[in-house]
Design a protein around this nucleic acid. Structure first.
Lengths: 270, 270
DNA sequence: CCCGATAGTTCCATTATTCAGAACTCAATT
DNA sequence: AATTGAGTTCTGAATAATGGAACTATCGGG
């Protein structure tokens, strides 16, 4: 009851209001640089960071010394390699991923299509793992990516596991972008969530990308400290609606296996 | 005058002496947690961090709020998902990786084996990219992983591009661990570096992992702001010594293509 | 039920870092 | 030579981090 209660007291959980002292300010800078289209010059960062020049200079210096940023030969700043090292370690040892791995492989074997494991974080889904059919994993091609909740199978599956208040909070906080003709709106999303809760499966019918469909099922821990989903994704010509229905059960089964694995693997230590 | 002149005169650039203010202290903690075998309790961290409890508590709190760490249901700390997100962004836009990608693919097509791109960072090699062959052989290699310099093809190739003083400094700073019967020692490494400088190719003859061999070639920018290498890696039964020789040239060619790509892609902006 | 031990959290005066803005250097332009 | 733009360094003043101790919670016996 202590660590988990992500109480919904604040509606304004906007990414802008941070209260993490010095670290928070530095992370804002790191975000600016990693989110940019390419390397940024000092002046470019200065313009968006809204900090005095002297201050910014020292901050970037610190980030660079720690390897979180890198200074290119021309003086521009780019994300640093230290990030890759940190991430690869955190990925390799992630408990949820390790527990899910065999089940993802099994599901991949069964379907022959790409299998994803994603987790809800804030109002996005972050992909924790993926098992591809013919081609092996291109690690960061997808893993680590943050994707919208409302138009991915995993995202919708995850949402269906949340209590209504948290669901409402998230829907309210997201701005719905229309990626394809089928992309949901807040209203249609709510209706779908109700369906998913009933059937146990979420579908993505070309809602994010034309030609891509998927079946997903929610995966969550009892205390909702982990909320995510598994999915099978593939091209529309292979994933006919019949196929989607056919694989709905196996996907659900995989999700359940992962969840029981989590109870065994994580439960005893509480 | 003492505070400012942080000239590069100090030889003792051991990883312990950081001068990055508050950020440095936090990064030490982040390293502790990401390098651990598993999630750590508060007290575990306290023991190795050597900080007062109150201080440590606040620091961990800040790291957690920023998503760099995560608190599990039982209170233990694990690396946070924010790291994955940051890394995936920095990876996707990495200039060197983007320039090298097509050449890595070509090399993979030609050889059918796994191709790596790695970069020197301090006394380790960090893998920036990997293109796997169609037959997945499970081996220790992952993007973002930091591996030892002295027993990987990419590592040795990278070393060969360095001037002697930097080479010496690195060799002196590394503790040589014996992974297999063939793992090099400081002396044999120096001899090999000389060979690599002459021939343009580095080899790994089961020096890191039994049954795994590789051919590599150095890739570096003119000003040595980028020092790394490309390699073709595979199981010993396929990568006979004859094969290694046969692929030495194509690997060198790929390295050269990447370097000329770097001159075009990165040069003009300097 | 109470005791002691272990684990984690909060408080607050002290101290060290960070801050902001101006002054400075350096190089490219006119 | 003078001007602009880009980046770096310096300073007292403001702020955030520090560390020690006091506090709470949880657990395992006796």
């Amino acid at each position: 009851m202590s660590a988990t209660d992500g109480d919904i007291m604040d509606k304004n959980e906007a990414a802008d209001k941070r209260e993490t002292g010095t670290l928070g300010k530095l992370m804002v800078l790191l975000d600016i640089v990693t989110h940019a289209d390419g390397p940024m010059r000092f002046t470019d960062i200065l313009a968006v960071a809204g900090q005095p020049r002297g201050t910014l200079h020292r901050q970037l210096g610190h980030l660079t010394e720690e390897g979180l940023l890198e200074v290119l030969a021309d003086g521009r700043y780019a994300p640093g390699l230290r990030l890759l090292d940190l991430a690869s370690r955190s990925w390799a040892r992630n408990e949820f991923r390790l527990i899910a791995e065999p089940h993802l492989n099994a599901l991949q074997q069964l379907t022959g299509e790409t299998v994803h494991l994603g987790v809800l974080r804030g109002a996005s889904v972050i992909y924790l793992d993926k098992v591809e059919g013919s081609q092996p994993v291109r690690m960061y091609s997808q893993i680590g990516n943050a994707s919208p909740i409302y138009c991915t199978g995993v995202g919708k599956a995850a949402l269906s596991a949340l209590p209504d208040d948290r669901l409402d909070a998230i829907i309210a906080s997201v701005s719905f972008q229309r990626f394809t003709e089928n992309t949901l709106t807040p209203e249609t999303l709510r209706r779908e969530i109700a369906d998913i809760r009933r059937s146990g499966n979420a579908f993505d019918r070309e809602e994010h990308e034309v030609g891509i469909r998927c079946v997903a099922a929610p995966v969550y821990s009892e205390d909702l400290s982990f909320v995510g989903g598994v999915s099978v994704t593939g091209p529309a010509y292979r994933l006919t609606f019949g196929r989607l229905e056919e694989w709905a059960l196996p996907v659900r089964r995989a999700a359940e296996s992962i969840m029981s694995g989590m109870r065994i693997g994580l439960g005893p230590r509480r």
